[in-house]
Amino acid sequence: MGALTLSSVTKAFGKTEVIRGVDLTVNDGEFCVFVGPSGCGKSTLLRMIAGLEDVTSGDVAIDGERINELAPARREIAMVFQSYALYPHLTVRQNMSLALKQLGKPRAEIIAAADKAAGMLALEPLMDRRPSELSGGQRQRVAIGRAIVRTPKLFLFDEPLSNLDAALRVATRIEIARLHRELGATMIYVTHDQVEAMTLADKIVVLHAGRVEQVGHPMTLYNDPDNMFVAGFIGSPAMNFLKAGTLGLRSATVGVRPEHIEVSDRAGRIEGRVSHLEKLGGETLTYVQTEDHGMLTVRQFGEYDHPVDGTVWLSPDQSRAFHFDAAGQRMR
C-alpha cells in the first residue's frame, strides 16, 4: 500500500512560482526518481509530498486519500535527507526508535523494529553510539534505518548520497536498491545525478524549472526522449546537438549521442579540431571543436589516440539521430 497521486500541484514562495502544475502517479511498490538540474524544484516537490511545505494549489493523495492538510507525522511516510539529520543528542537506537515512541507503540515492539532494521543495514555494533561518533556513510545508514523502522507507506529520499565519497556512494546506492527489493515499498528518490536515476529507477520524472518534462522508464527516456531537455539531460556524456540546416535536414536541431559519431583522420561530414582527449581504459572520449556546431563529444569503446590540435572528420550516424523542432520538441 502506498500509491501516490499528484494532481495539478503548484507551489509559490511569495510571487515566485517554483512548482508549476505537476501531475504524477507513482504506483504501489514503484521506485520513482525525480531528477533535474539544481534549483528545478525537486526538493520542494518532495517536501510537499512529506507535508513539510504547504501546497499552493492542487491535490496530493496517498492511496486515493487527499492528504493536503495532514501533518507530516500522520502521513505514514519516512524521509532521508542529504545532511542525514540525525538527532545529535540521541544514540543510534534512540534515533531509530523516536518515531514509534511518539506514536505510543509498546516498548517491545519498538525494540524489535529497531533490531530488525539494524540487522538489515548491519548497524548492530553501532546501536549505542551517538551520531558524532559515526562516519558519514554510517550516519546515512542510520538515517535509512530510522526510515525503515517506521514501515512507512512511502519512503522519501532527498539526495541521500550527495555528501558521500564516490566509493561509498556506489555501495549505498546498491544497498538502497536491495532494500527496495526486500521491502517492496514505494520509494521516491530525488537526485541531480543521472547515473543514480538510471540505475535505481523503475520510473524517472525529469523536472525542469518546476515542470515535468517527461515521465518514463529509464530506457524509454534514453531511447525515446520527448524533447531536447530530456535528451540532453539523460545519458552521460551528454548528447551532442547539431544544427540541422548545415547538414541539409529539415528539422531545427539534430541530437546524436557521443557513441553514434564516427571519427576519421581522412574524410567525413564535419571537420573539426581535437581540443581534448580523455582515456578511461574501456572507452575514449574525444572533444572536438567544430565551426558550425561548437564542441562535440565522441565516445569510442576501447583505446584510441587522436593528437590534440589535430584535424579529424566526424560522421554522425543519421539513422540513430533524434530530430527536434525549433521549440525543442521531438519530431518523430
Binding site: R47, A50, G51, L52, A71, P72, A73, R74, I77, A78, M79, F81, Q82, S83, Y84, A85, L86, Y87, P88, H89, L98, A99, Q102, L103, D158
Partner: peptide, 27 residues
C-alpha cells in the same frame, strides 16, 4: 540550524515545542 533536522523531527511526530527545546536550543 539545519532545516533537515527540524523536518526530520516533524516527520517523526515531535511537537514544535520539542523541536525548539530539544533540537534547536542545544545547537
Amino acid at each position: 540550524v539545519s532545516d533537515d533536522l527540524k523536518s526530520a523531527g516533524r516527520i517523526d511526530g515531535l511537537s514544535e515545542y520539542t523541536i525548539f527545546f530539544r533540537l534547536v536550543l542545544p545547537l
